[in-house]
Design a binder for these strands. Structure first.
Length: 229
DNA sequence: GTCCGGTCCC
DNA sequence: GGGACCGGAC
């Protein structure tokens, strides 16, 4: 017996992908937020921001990001710090396993990778604290690779625009949303595009009270207009 | 009080 | 597949 599979969800055709990219990038250039980790390509700075942004909103991360980089300006500095000090500095962001994992990545980078963060997906995923989302973020933001991302914001945006109905959190849906994230990814402007996806989900296509009036996709959004028909 | 969230681990 | 982690938003 073949395993039960959900209905096959189609990926958007080339014109639809292109419209989405163009619209989203135009929105981002006009409305995207100016955040400090969007002005750097330093892998250490990118990694610190991404670990902090796991389960933590931008407004709470901003001051801690600056404090952290002031205190631990490099992988070497973080690797050499006392663990208790590192955990204390992290407060009150929460999920206090994260600073320990960040420091262990720093120590690994210093000991085994010449003080650099590895850029290949398999090595990034081998670090505790780096999962599929953070690996994609690091590859695209720090190393300029054409890597897709899927965090909760991106998943919500892609689900609403291109799918609109079904179980948003099912395993099959998440697999489809990863495929969508890869399918819509442009060849150029990958950094801006991925930042735009997250920014759009965080500020317009929000979980509660989405700002559809200000959404440049509203006329083509499957969720807003009804997925079928 | 209830929901939310990336990753790890069971 | 489901719970733990830790705080904030509503």
């Amino acid at each position: 017996m073949p395993r039960k599979t959900g209905p096959l969800l189609p990926l958007p055709d080339a014109p639809a992908r292109r419209r989405f990219r163009t619209t989203l990038l135009a929105w981002y250039r006009a409305q995207g937020r100016d955040l400090p980790w969007r002005r750097t390509r330093d892998p250490y700075h990118i990694l610190v921001s991404e670990i902090m942004l796991q389960q933590t909103q931008v407004d709470r991360v901003l001051p801690k990001y600056h404090e952290w980089l002031g205190k631990y300006p490099s992988f070497e500095a973080l690797a050499a710090a006392a663990e208790d000090d590192v955990v204390q500095t992290w407060r009150p962001l929460g999920y206090n396993i994260r600073p320990r994992r960040l420091q262990s990545i720093a120590r690994e980078a210093v000991s085994n990778h010449g003080g650099q963060l590895p850029s290949d997906e398999a090595t990034l995923l081998s670090f505790k604290g780096i999962g599929a989302y953070t690996a994609g973020a690091v590859m695209s933001f720090a190393f300029g690779k054409r890597a897709a991302i899927l965090d909760t914001n991106v998943a919500r945006v892609l689900f609403r625009v291109f799918v609109g109905e079904g179980e948003p959190k099912s395993h099959a849906m998440l697999k489809h949303l990863w495929e969508l994230s890869r399918a819509v990814l442009p060849h150029k402007h990958v950094f801006d595009f991925n930042q735009a996806l997250m920014d759009f989900g965080a500020t317009v296509c929000t979980a509660r009270k989405p700002q559809c009036l200000y959404c440049p996709m509203r006329k083509r959004c499957a969720y807003r207009n009804g997925a079928s028909t």
